[in-house]
Design a protein around this nucleic acid. Structure first.
Length: 493
RNA sequence: CGGGGUGUAGCGCAGUUGGCUAGCGUGCCACGUUCGGGACGUGGAGGCCGGAGGUUCGAGUCCUCUCACCCCGACCA
């Protein structure tokens, strides 16, 4: 037993626990650049699985991928007023295009003679460059809809960063669609919200709340912002994805018009939608425990790890032969298997290591198993072990992977249920927040002022107004004014 | 941008009122014994003490300046 393997617990220090998991499960690390992370191979392969699943869902709903530039001319930004305002404070700007050797011998310096005519903004999001491009693509209703997605990196110069949850540079996808009617653009935004909810619930096994943002929380430049909100184990909410109905704001800013059937010219209607590497943060915080990362089988880079237990070379050879067969039949079922036969590391270490990395299932095979025709099968989600006949192994594992996936979802939804409350008075509301956070349904008078006050006093924000919300008349918990529905408050990431 | 903290071996740290060859744990390499829940022995490699300047016979240690990163706030996905 080595004492170096003591990690922080959720109870003791939640944010340290989170950082420990990210670092020690080999997901990511801080880079030499402030606020930017290196996503390590194990972490990146989870992201790749997310990408693959999402990309297929986008294509299945009629979208195609394209790529737009990293750099955006500064002037583009000022064309949509609220959009500039939303992003101005966190933009990285390219001002020069050349370096030179300092004549004073101070090394490499920026060549002052190489200033750009017009500065370039490193995209914090691509609406402007894309809508400027769409102007050339769209002339008539026959060119619509345009249903384009891009996978890209973006930069938002954040003051404070946390691995995956908020980094200065992050990876994401952004869909940008153009439509002939407002209804169509709205239903596109709603459709993509459903796609996100479907992905997060069925692949990540994280339950989400679908809703609309209040004007305060809305995307800069949008008419309406839809979102999916997930609840983390510490009672804080995390926005897992958003889609926006942009109206004609960007079409007007970039003069994108189309000729309708009747020949009349009108501005195009738009939507945009995105999810980012932030989903990794949601994934980690939704399922992991004090023994490390817990991954849903559908996103686990390794679904089954096999660890041999042996006393000598000869025995290892026998076990390896046996394992080769098992591995092959598992792989034939599309299951990702790793056989870890490293001989410089003992089995106990491997057990703990794969637990920390969240591998859903572990098979251990030793001398006793060889005699009995069995294997020890351990589940990461419940930390339970059982002895299984080798002949039943493949079938058993197939079933278990499905069961683990659904168990994680059930567990998460139960946690959310336990952390969801309704408050009828402001005192109760504050008590609930300080007690253990969570989602709090409360009446709100619909004004930004009230929302702002509550935020200042409690740090809780309105996460969303749930879609298909039940209407009921009551008093706002803060102002006492009439309210027509409960909205969802929480402290958030 | 305010407050706090940290820079010494890959990682985690110690280093006394300035003192001679800068240490510990872990990891790494070699060999051997081990292997059913984080093994052990022996030997070995590994350092511009974040950077610049200063004080001093002598600086990891004292002074000044600087850089970087982390944490907590304000701002944001």
């Amino acid at each position: 037993m080595s004492k170096d393997f003591v990690f922080s617990t959720r109870e003791k220090d939640y944010s340290k626990w989170y950082n420990d998991i990210v670092e020690k499960a080999d997901l990511a690390e801080h880079s030499a650049v402030r606020g930017c992370m290196v996503i390590k191979p194990y972490g990146y392969s989870i992201w790749e699985k997310m990408q693959a699943a999402l990309d297929k869902m986008f294509k299945d709903t009629g979208h195609v991928n394209a790529y737009f530039p990293l750099f955006i001319p500064k002037s583009f930004f000022s064309k949509e007023a609220s959009h500039v305002e939303g992003f101005a404070k966190e933009c990285a700007i390219v001002t020069h295009y050349r370096l030179k050797n300092d004549e004073g011998g101070k090394g490499i310096v920026v060549d002052p003679d190489a200033a750009l005519e017009e500065e370039l903004i490193i995209r914090p999001t691509s609406e402007t460059i894309i809508w400027n491009t769409y102007r050339g693509w769209i002339q008539s209703y026959r060119d619509l809809p345009v249903l384009v997605n891009q996978w890209a990196n973006v930069v938002r110069w954040e003051m404070r960063t946390r691995l995956f949850l908020r980094t200065a540079e992050f990876l994401w996808q952004e869909g940008h669609t153009a439509h002939a009617t407002a209804e169509e653009a709205v239903s596109e935004a709603e459709k993509m919200l459903d796609v996100y909810a479907d992905f997060v619930e069925n692949w990540m096994a994280v339950p989400v709340l679908k809703g609309v943002k209040t004007p305060n929380e809305r995307f800069a430049g949008a008419i309406d912002t839809y979102c999916i909100e997930a609840l983390m184990q510490d009672g804080k909410a995390l926005q897992a994805g958003t889609s926006h109905f942009l109206g004609q704001n960007f079409a007007k800013a970039f003069d994108v018009k189309f000729a309708a059937k009747d020949g009349k010219l009108d501005y195009v209607w738009a939507s945009s939608w995105g999810v980012s590497t932030r989903l990794m943060g949601a994934l980690i915080m939704a399922h992991s425990d004090d023994a490390g990362l817990v991954l849903p089988p559908k996103l686990a880079p390794i679904q089954v790890v096999i660890v041999p237990i042996y006393k000598n070379e000869e025995q290892l050879k026998q076990i390896s032969e046996m394992v080769a067969g098992i591995k092959k039949s598992l792989e034939a079922k599309g299951i990702t298997v790793k056989y870890d036969d490293r001989d410089n590391i003992r089995p106990g270490f491997k057990f703990a290591d794969y637990e920390f990395k969240g591998v859903p299932l572990r098979i251990a095979i030793g001398g006793r198993d060889m005699e009995n025709g069995t294997a020890e099968l351990a589940r990461r989600d419940t930390m339970t072990k059982e002895t299984v006949k080798q002949t039943d192994l493949v079938e058993k594992i197939e079933k278990l992977l499905i069961e683990i996936q659904s168990n994680l979802y059930t567990r998460a939804i139960n946690r959310r249920k336990a952390a969801t409350h309704t408050a009828d008075t402001y005192d109760d509301f504050k008590k609930m927040l300080d007690d253990k956070g969570g989602f709090i349904y409360a009446h709100w008078d619909g004004t930004s002022e009230t929302e702002q006050k509550i935020k200042e006093e409690t740090k809780a924000t309105i996460r969303c107004i749930p879609l298909n919300n039940k209407k009921e008349t009551a008093k706002c918990i803060y102002s006492g004014k009439t309210s027509t529905q409960r909205v969802v408050f929480a402290r958030a990431y």
